[in-house]
C-alpha cells in the first residue's frame, strides 16, 4: 500500500506571536510538524507496517521545511518530496493544493493522508482541495480508520457526534486527534533518516507555471487581538463569592 502524506511545517503551539509591519514575524520561532499532520504520518506508517508499501511525505515550503520532512522520515516515512519555488512563497492553500496534486498525480498511490487542519491559519482547506484536484473521494476529521480490500471505513467527527463513511481507495483522508497516538522518532530512526531520499522539486519540474498557483486570497494585515480587559477575582467566604458571581452573571454580564 503506497501512501502519500502531506505535511506542513508550522509554528510551535507555544510560540509567542510577534507582528512586524502588519505580518506575523517568523524570527526566532521554533518550527514543528503541524500536530494534526503528525497523526496522519503516524497512521500512514502504521498502515505501511501492516500492509507493506511505502510512505512518501510531501510538503510545500522553503529550506527549513526540510527539517520537518526529515522528522517524518525519522518517524518512519520512506522518502520525502519538497516542492519549493519562489512563486509559492505567497501561495494560498489552493495554490499549495494545486502544486501537491500535480506532484501526487505523477506518483503511484492508494491513499493521500493529511492533517485535518494546520494550527497556523486553522483553515482546514488543503485536504478537500487536494481531493478535488485529484478527483478523489474525501473523508475529513477522522478519529478511526479501517482499511480492507481496497476499501476504507472511516469514522469522521461531525457536530454533535460522528459518522461512519465508506469509500473505495484511492481517497484523500484527513486526521483528527484521537486517530492514534503519535510515536516519537527513535534514535535509530533519526540516524536512518539522514540517508533517506529527500527530493526538492520546483514548479517547472512539475510543469506548472506561477499563474497556476497564483494566490486568490491575500493576508493584507495581521494584528494582535485586543487584550481582554482585566477580570476580577472575587473574595470572601464561598457562599458570598458564589452569590456575588451569580448576580454578576445575571445583572452585569447578562449571560444567564
Amino acid at each position: 500500500m503506497n501512501i502519500v502524506t502531506c505535511i506542513k511545517q508550522t509554528f510551535d503551539t507555544e510560540a509567542k506571536i510577534v507582528i512586524d509591519n502588519g505580518q506575523v514575524s517568523t524570527q526566532g520561532v521554533n518550527l514543528i510538524v503541524n500536530p494534526y499532520d503528525e497523526y496522519a504520518v503516524e497512521e500512514s506508517i502504521r498502515l505501511k507496517e501492516k500492509n507493506g508499501g511505502e510512505v512518501v511525505v510531501v510538503s510545500v515550503g522553503g529550506d527549513k521545511t526540510q527539517e520537518a520532512l526529515r522528522y517524518c522520515l525519522a518517524m518512519g516515512a520512506d522518502r520525502a518530496v519538497l516542492i519549493q519555488d519562489p512563486a509559492l512563497e505567497q501561495a494560498d492553500n489552493l495554490g499549495c493544493a494545486v502544486a501537491m496534486a500535480k506532484l501526487i498525480s505523477q506518483m503511484e498511490y492508494d491513499l493521500v493522508f493529511c492533517g485535518k487542519e494546520a494550527v497556523d491559519d486553522g483553515a482546514a482547506q488543503v485536504p478537500s482541495m487536494l481531493a478535488e484536484k485529484l478527483d478523489l473521494p474525501q473523508a475529513n476529521v477522522l478519529t478511526a480508520l479501517e482499511i480492507a480490500d481496497g476499501q476504507a471505513t472511516a469514522t469522521r467527527e461531525i457536530d454533535g457526534g460522528s459518522e461512519v463513511l465508506e469509500m473505495k481507495l484511492p481517497a484523500v483522508l484527513s486526521a483528527q486527534k484521537g486517530l492514534n497516538e503519535v510515536r516519537y522518532p527513535s534514535l535509530p530512526g533519526i540516524m536512518k533518516a539522514k540517508r533517506k531520499e529527500l527530493k526538492v522539486v520546483s514548479l517547472a519540474d512539475l510543469e506548472l507555471s506561477a499563474e497556476d498557483v497564483a494566490a486568490k486570497t491575500e493576508l493584507v494585515a495581521a494584528e494582535l487581538p485586543p487584550a481582554r480587559k482585566a477580570g476580577r477575582v472575587l473574595s470572601g467566604e464561598i457562599d458570598e463569592m458564589v452569590a456575588e458571581l451569580v448576580s454578576l452573571l445575571k445583572d452585569e454580564a447578562k449571560v444567564i
Binding site: 516519537y184 522518532p185 533519526i190 540516524m191 539522514k194
Partner: peptide, 15 residues
Amino acid sequence: TEEERMMLQMTRDFA
C-alpha cells in the same frame, strides 16, 4: 547538526 536538532526536539517532547 540535523540529527542533534531532532534529538533535542524528540527528547524535549518526550521529557
